[in-house]
Design a protein around this nucleic acid. Structure first.
Lengths: 222, 222, 222, 222
DNA sequence: CATGAATGAGGCTTCATTCAT
DNA sequence: GATGAATGAAGCCTCATTCAT
């Protein structure tokens, strides 16, 4: 059986892999806390350094800048999700149930994994929702892309697209639908939290989210 | 008949309405150029001041900060769109055709309006796509929301949701679907430009986008 | 008659002309003090700001970086010298006496000009000797040159070269000799101060310097 | 007969002689590459460490700082030149021809010596021209001098001065002329490469340089 | 109303160096 | 002897903002 840890984050996002040292793990832990607390715009390496009781220079040994740090976290999430999807679907027969499982996973908060003490999954999920799009909504997107920094997202969409095509091989927009599903899951939760007029979900109502996305997906494919 | 100019941008976004003075219009014109060129993160009032041949202090007379300026532009777009939708749909009988018209408008670039010389619609559309989400993906979203800075987006979604409900009054997720349509139109174009693996559209292929979103919407409602 | 002030420093070296404001003049005054005291390598805008009781940001309104500030000072010197040469030679008949006058000026410290209170000529002269060459001995020299930042030096050499050619129109290396004269005057004083084994001058012996350079020049031309 | 290798670099410039280990030689090799490529101001031990695939700490075992490293290289050049001069002149009878030989050597690029694989003579020559003066144009010059870090230059000038005096024992400025010859050879090449208005040489025209300096020297002595 | 001048604060980044292995 | 990790200090620069005119 596949384990929860069968994934690695693209190391192009970091100068040095943070999970390989105590300081690195503290950087991850505290950057998640801080990003969740103050948001990407207010987040600085200075503040992060202070909150981990270290220095900016030390953080620079791990990440070039805060954008790369965000990309690391976002890639971690994509990797975690892809892995989770594979683990939860590989034994399933029905393609439809597979896709349902994917949407279930996407529409739910990440589960806590007590064996990984340097990632707070709950907060990371909030960061993905509130800051995730900023990983690609930057002028440097093409450059980042050519460095392979979005492979995680692409991999994830590719898997979802394949599930879609397994159900309906003639559907023309499998990749678009896949990315729409992913983005919608995040957006609708954000709207439920902050702009309720833009959604029908109650705050953090993952169950309704799942209904909405599942229905939308199923209807669209057929 | 409704005119193209029957909308006003919420003046909470600005200290002083920029369209009421020459300098204000130059601020709008050049901020669109600059945002399109360098992106929100690299955009500063200093650079803007330089490119309009004025000073930062002068810009502060119009906008508190760059976030408010972005909100102004985004609201302008939402207002323009709402107005355009009303103009283009009020004479239509079929609710389905009305919704189709909305998606057509959302999936197309803004048309140039030669009578408004201080807005470059083409560039503004690019800004909406690349920076629009940053208008709400900020820690200050609740504060901004309570100041009414997202009324434009809400109004737009409300109209779309009403069209949806007119077709199928029993559909449970009209607002979620409305915001999903809007976001998807922007995201898919961005992906087509920068992350093609996440979409099936060719770069800026608005026609395919329309097909994708229209089919998704129609299937979902029924 | 020509006045002492018939020269302007190329304004490409500064963002804003420092002699046009009180703060600007204080920047000049104190940068000369500080450069003389601690040398270019140890000189920073932070230290300069502290010594003028202002901030780095304020200094940046005048000079892009310390290299540009050095170029400003060096250009001031070149301009001063060119002007001085013109003033002191234009009434002379003998070409030989003209050249002699030039060398006399080059081999002597700048005179104090009590009307210019923001330049300490004595210290500036020391800076030229100890740091002047660093104005061009940089990787950015070609870029700086194409921006016209060395026009002062070129103008000075051109004048000297013309005096040389007036004496011996057939001399093939007038520009090389001109720049050699200038560089030698500075180098020999530096050596007399710090590396006496490399010169025959006693420390700051401008009289012997003049003899040396004058003889070298005269012998070479004929 | 004197060999090409009868010289040692003053070991005061280094903590540990780099030619005595593989890493040391790599440090020399790559520091020459890097200095030539990016210049002294942009050169750091961090960059050097990266380009030799080692660490800053390792470089500190050889050199205290980049200034000492520059002094090492400059001394290597002075030592090489002194040695070369002795080798090429000791068999000559005519004092004039000896001086001519010296100028020929000074005015020519260093020859490649295939037996010394850790020094790229061609690049070192460029470094001498562009950075050499910075070895002494520093606030620490007196300190460095009292540690004997300029013995190489002094030795070189002493030899040249002796040749001058052998031709004309009554010439008063033999050391000044010697250092002027050395500096002029470097300056004129630099000017020919970057500030052509300050010289009559075509770029890297060592032949004309030789003519210029030889004539200047000969005329001055007599 | 618009602008020019100035600046406090802090962002981002690198340097030079040390310590432990 | 060489290296990997860490960091204090500082460098360089820009931002957002205010004040006086």
């Amino acid at each position: 059986m596949l384990s929860n840890l069968t994934f690695v984050v693209s190391n192009k996002t970091c100068v040095k892999d943070p999970i390989k040292s105590e300081l690195g793990k503290r950087i991850l832990l505290e950057s998640i806390n801080l990003l969740d607390e103050i948001g990407l715009e207010h987040f600085t390496f200075r503040k992060l350094a202070k909150s981990i009781g270290s220095t900016e220079a030390s953080i620079y040994r791990y990440f070039e800048n805060k954008h790369k740090l965000l990309l690391y976290l976002v890639n971690w999430y994509w990797g975690w999700l892809e892995n989770k999807i594979l683990v939860e679907t590989h034994h399933l027969r029905s393609n439809y149930v597979k896709l349902e499982t994917v949407i279930e996973l996407l529409a739910s908060p990440i589960e806590q994994d007590p064996t990984i003490e340097y990632i707070n999954e709950e907060k990371l999920y909030q960061i993905i929702i509130a800051e995730g799009a900023k990983a690609y909504l930057v002028k440097e997107v093409d450059e980042d892309n050519s460095e392979g920094l979005f492979l995680g997202y692409k991999g994830l969409c590719s898997i979802i697209a394949n599930f879609i095509l397994a159900i309906n091989p003639k559907y023309k927009h499998s990749h678009s639908l896949a990315s729409t599903i992913v983005e919608t899951c995040h957006n609708q939760i954000f709207f439920s939290q902050h702009l309720p007029k833009l959604t029908d979900l109650k705050e953090d109502d993952h169950s309704t989210l799942k209904d909405f996305v599942l229905h939308l997906t199923a209807a669209t494919i057929h």
